[in-house]
């Protein structure tokens, strides 16, 4: 505690860092250091504040948020079940590990046409979000389950525990911090997955806004949509990091 910087100092660093970033983006835009495609931050923000801009961003952010949340829930649930299956039936472990790795290795670009023909344009973003979240969650949960101390396992053995009670009373509670780790890492992945999923012909969403703004050379809109996606992803991350801290306090 004594060696770590005090909270006030940390907050000051964070504010200074944020301010530096804002000033730099503004200056690069103003002096066109990165070409005309990089508008000053003030222009982007003033666009966000216009009624048209705000309405457009809010409507599309909600669509992306919904897809991301659906994918987040689906991906997390499937991954937790998969990791639990690998734990309870060790025979499945190598197969599931490899399946997750292969699924993760397939580029989204290659999957997109498949998903559009199978689940359709509207649901593809949620599925791509689920795939991104699922891999992160599976890896985190698998390591969380592998982490149980052998003394506690011995304890359950000498008390004559059956498999189900060992899972419910030892392995699942021990994996709770890992679960929240997975959520914190998965939340930005869900937003990213949903946004990219919307590039492939979704009727609405931040991804669609990004693609159409780029094609119509609406730089302020393009940057505003990117900013909205980033804010969403950052906010989700910060919320789940807080939950993860609470889980760490409660479960270790």
């Amino acid at each position: 505690m004594n060696t770590a910087p005090r909270t006030s100092v940390k907050v000051a660093y964070a504010i200074a860092g944020g301010a530096l970033l804002i000033v730099l983006t503004q200056l690069i835009g103003t002096f066109e250091l990165a070409g005309r495609a990089w508008p000053p931050l003030a222009d982007v923000l003033s666009y966000v504040l216009t009624p048209t801009g705000a309405g457009l961003l809010v409507r599309n952010s909600l669509v992306t948020f919904t897809s991301a949340a659906q994918g987040f829930a689906l991906g997390s649930a499937v991954a937790v079940l998969g990791a639990a299956l690998a734990l309870v039936v060790p025979m499945f472990r190598p197969g599931l590990d490899r399946f997750a790795a292969i699924l993760h290795a397939v580029p989204t670009i290659a999957l997109a046409p498949l998903l559009i023909t199978t689940v359709g344009r509207e649901d593809a973003p949620a599925v791509i979000a689920a795939l991104s979240v699922g891999f992160v969650m599976f890896v985190t949960m698998a390591s969380g389950f592998a982490n149980t101390g052998s003394a506690q396992h011995d304890l359950f053995t000498v008390f004559g525990s059956n498999r189900a009670r060992r899972l419910v009373r030892l392995e699942l509670p021990r994996a709770v911090p890992a679960f929240f780790d997975g959520l914190a890492l998965g939340a930005p992945a869900a937003v990213l997955g949903a946004t990219i999923g919307e590039w492939f012909g979704a009727p609405m969403g931040l991804g669609l806004v990004i693609v159409s703004a780029m094609q119509n050379y609406q730089m302020s809109l393009l940057w505003a949509a990117a900013l909205a996606a980033t804010a969403m992803s950052l906010l989700a991350y910060l919320i789940f990091v807080q939950l993860q801290r609470i889980a760490m306090r409660r479960f270790t």
Partner: peptide, 9 residues
């Protein structure tokens, strides 16, 4: 055991 192996939660 020597390690108390209590459940921390």
């Amino acid at each position: 055991f020597q390690e108390h192996a209590l459940l921390p939660w």
